[in-house]
Design a binder for these strands. Structure first.
Lengths: 158, 158
DNA sequence: ATGAATGTGGATAACTCTTGTCCGAGTTAG
DNA sequence: CTAACTCGGACAAGAGTTATCCACATTCAT
């Protein structure tokens, strides 16, 4: 899985707690990561429709939906793309005993097992929203969101 | 996920239906894939202890356990390695508001969610054995295993 | 013993994907 | 209108994957 997924989830969590557009500069500074590379991942989020890009001065990114309606799965898919991890290359159709066209109307047994496992993985990620993440974080570090919100509003970009 | 996983699962399914050592040459020919590259993946299976390598003439590979005791997860892990797909880089400890050492005794919320999803994925794969795969295949194409077994025993390597 | 068949490990090359950086186009506040 | 600030896509560099080949040790039949 792409490492940018971690950055994107953290950024979306921050965005769900923000009230005004947050520029990439602040997101990168807040998380201590490269600004230019983070921008690339934010583009993917914007392209997927998860976040809205506000251009121009005082612009930045906004979530298009409330945090309670954005699942971790949405973010992972926006960054890593929709392709499944396992790709069946249909080797059952090769070799001296190729599968009949009749049997190939159904995905091969191995592909079915892999697809089922990926569905289980996706269902698990779908069941967690940004609101859940933020609630858990606030429970472990009370008041942190207030600090971050204040920093976002007050700190001028140097 | 590595593409070699598909080859490895197919090969293990064949091995679980075989009674004598099957050399890489036959496995590759049977599946219509590159012999040299398949040899690399078989080495990985051998290293993991899933299969036993018989050297010398009339050698080949044998499963070390019956097919009913080998799960698809075992094969995936042997080929792709034990590292999880998601690696937490602890960016919560960076930036102007690093997480306290107290909070870091527990994995960050995002890592927990990802780990839980990967467990669900692994559990799904663990629940399917080579025997299950072979039974499903035999139901869709009755008698195919007999054909393959005969070809393995009779065909001399050219 | 000899030769053929077989797995093992290393070295190597092409290719793809991820990672990372840069500069330009467009927008908005003042 | 100007100037600053924003996103957006094009552009390199690095790492990992995919794929191949060969020299070597081992085993069995002749």
């Amino acid at each position: 899985m792409s490492a940018g997924v971690e950055w994107a989830v953290h950024c979306c969590a921050v965005l769900s707690a923000a009230t005004e557009p947050v520029p990439v500069t602040k997101l990168a500074e807040l998380h201590g990561v490269s600004k230019t590379y983070l921008a690339k991942h934010m583009q993917a989020l914007s392209h997927s429709g998860l976040v809205q890009a506000i251009e121009g001065r005082d612009g930045g990114y906004l979530l298009t939906r409330p945090g309670s309606e954005v699942s971790v799965y949405d973010i992972v898919q926006a960054i890593d793309g929709p392709e499944p991890a396992f790709r069946c290359t249909e080797i059952r159709q090769r070799g001296p005993f190729p599968a009949t066209a009749e049997a190939c109307k159904v995905p091969c047994g191995i592909a079915q097992v892999m697809a089922k496992a990926e569905r289980a993985w996706g269902d698990s990620l779908r069941s967690v929203t940004l609101a859940d993440l933020n609630a858990a974080f606030d429970a472990s570090s009370p008041g942190s969101w207030e600090t971050v919100r204040g920093w976002l509003a007050a700190t001028p970009t140097p």
